[in-house]
Structures are given as C-alpha cells and as structure tokens.
Amino acid sequence: MKTCEVFLLLVFSTSALSDTGGLLRSCKIKDIECLSKSTEQFLEKTCKGIPEADIRAIDPLVIPALDYAAEDIGGVSLHFTNINISGLKNQKISDFQMDKDKMSVVLKLNVDLNIVSELDVKLTEHSKIFSGTYKAKATTLATANYNYDLRNNDKGVRYFEVLPETITCSIVQKPEVSLNDELVQALNKDEHIKEGIVKYEKKRDEYKERAICKIVQKAYETVIHNIRAAAKFLPAEDFFQDI
C-alpha cells in the first residue's frame, strides 16, 4: 500500500469512524442476533455513502439504466432508466453461513423495497417504443454467494478480500406493480402488442417478479460492493471474533 493511501486511511479511521463509534460490532460467526445488530449498525452509518472509503449510498439507491428482455411474450423488452430504490437501509439478515474451510459465504437478506423508474417498453420486431413510469413495492429475499481470502498487511494485521459474488433473488410476497395510465392505454390500443399482452396475462405474477428481481440483483451489486470496500480498511477481527 502506498504511503499516501496509508495516510488517507489513517485520517479516515481516526476521524469519521471514531466519531461514529465504529461501523461494525465484532460477532461470532454463528451468532445471527449479533450479526443482525452489526448489519443494522453498518447500514445506519453507511446508507448515505462514505466517498472517502468507496462506500456508496444505498438509500436511496439510483441505478442509471437496466434492460430486461421478455422475448417469450412477443419480442418485448423493457428499458428502465433513473431507477430509484428505497428501503435498503432497513434490510435484515435472514441467514448467514460461513465455511472457514472452503472460505465461502452465503448471505441472505430480506428487505421491503419501493421502486420508481422511467420505463420504455420496446417492441423490437416493429421498432416501436412506449414510454411511461413504473412503480413497484415488494418484499424480496436476496442471496449473495461469494468466496473470500485472508491477507496480512506488513504489520501482520489480517484483512478480508471479498471475491466476486453471485446474487439471486426471490419475491417473498405478491408484489404491487403499476404503470402510469397513459402508458397502459397506449399498450392496450396497439395491435402489435395484443398477442404479448395475452401471454403476459397468463403469467402476470411471474413476469412481475422477474422484472423486480432483475432490479434487485443489480441493486445488491452495490450492497456487496460496500462490504468489499469496508473489508479493505477494517481488520478481519472487526467483523468476526472467531475468524
């Protein structure tokens, strides 16, 4: 680590972190209650972001753009822009499994989300675009699987290195999804999307959940990024007592 980087981390840790009383509480790996409280503490202190530590704001979390193709309902694709997500600061640990031999983690987080986005509904075969707004409320369960490594710095202090993650999503309860009236009317009037609407209606809940989970998976890339960023300057023992 370069001298300037060490200096910045020292300044950051002795000012911002000491003022907040620490981002985490150290827990035993199987102590879910402690881990839950530590998560709450971390989210409370970081949800607005800490740029000095490369910790990004998550509540609200804004995703600039995201595409979702629903080819099985008539070549329809959804282009979301300016996706605003609120609720991530209140997420709860549903389960946490850490295998010290395999150096792997399974982290499950339950959260109630509100999503507001601009939306373009594209008919690729007919070069048509219908624009409007999209809103959703959903209780989701996001599961992050990742491996980690432990590395010592030149002073013998151990730090986690969080390796690339895989994120999956499921919807816990029936979501609420709505489009603005003008968009709905335009879609209902268009002759080229009628077949797609019929297919959509047959699996309405499934399609709603697919789109929401696409957004949730993208959102949790930022959540795991923040864990990865914190692991770069917080010693492993700040996370776990029995690592």
Rank of each mutant, 00 (worst) to 15 (best):
A144F: 00
D101H: 04
S117D: 12
I73K: 00
E182N: 14
V11P: 02
A16I: 13
K89A: 11
D238T: 07
I171E: 02
I171P: 01
K122T: 08
T222M: 14
E118L: 14
G22L: 08
K128V: 06
A65T: 13
T81P: 02
H79M: 12
A186S: 15
A136S: 14
D238A: 13
D67C: 08
K100V: 14
L78S: 11
I55D: 12
A231D: 11
Q217G: 13
K37A: 11
Q173M: 04
F130R: 08
V157R: 05
E71C: 03
K122Y: 02
K108R: 13
N84W: 01
L187V: 07
L66S: 01
S38G: 09
I83P: 03
V172P: 02
T133W: 02
V62E: 14
I227G: 03
Y220E: 09
V6R: 09
E191K: 04
D205M: 12
K208Y: 15
D54R: 04
F130Q: 10
K30T: 08
S15N: 12
T81L: 01
L123W: 01
I63H: 01
L78A: 10
I115N: 05
M1A: 13
L183N: 07
V76I: 15
L23W: 03
L66W: 02
E5Y: 07
E237C: 09
N110H: 07
V105I: 15
Q97R: 13
Y134R: 11
L17F: 06
D95R: 13
K203F: 12
K48V: 03
D112K: 05
K232D: 14
A65G: 08
K202H: 11
T139V: 04
L10N: 09
L17V: 15
P60R: 11
K102I: 09
T222E: 12
N82E: 13
C213F: 02
E206W: 14
H126E: 08
A70H: 05
E40I: 05
I85L: 13
P64C: 07
Y207S: 01
I93C: 05
K48E: 11
L88F: 01
I243A: 05
T81G: 04
I224Y: 02
A53L: 06
C34W: 02
N152R: 12
K28T: 05
D190N: 01
R204I: 08
D154C: 11
T140L: 02
Y220N: 15
V162E: 07
H225P: 04
K89I: 05
V177P: 03
K199L: 15
S170V: 11
N82I: 07
K232R: 14
V216L: 03
A53S: 10
I167L: 04
V172M: 07
D154G: 03
D59W: 09
K92H: 07
R25A: 07
T139I: 02
I243H: 08
S38P: 03
N188Q: 15
L66M: 04
M1T: 12
L141F: 05
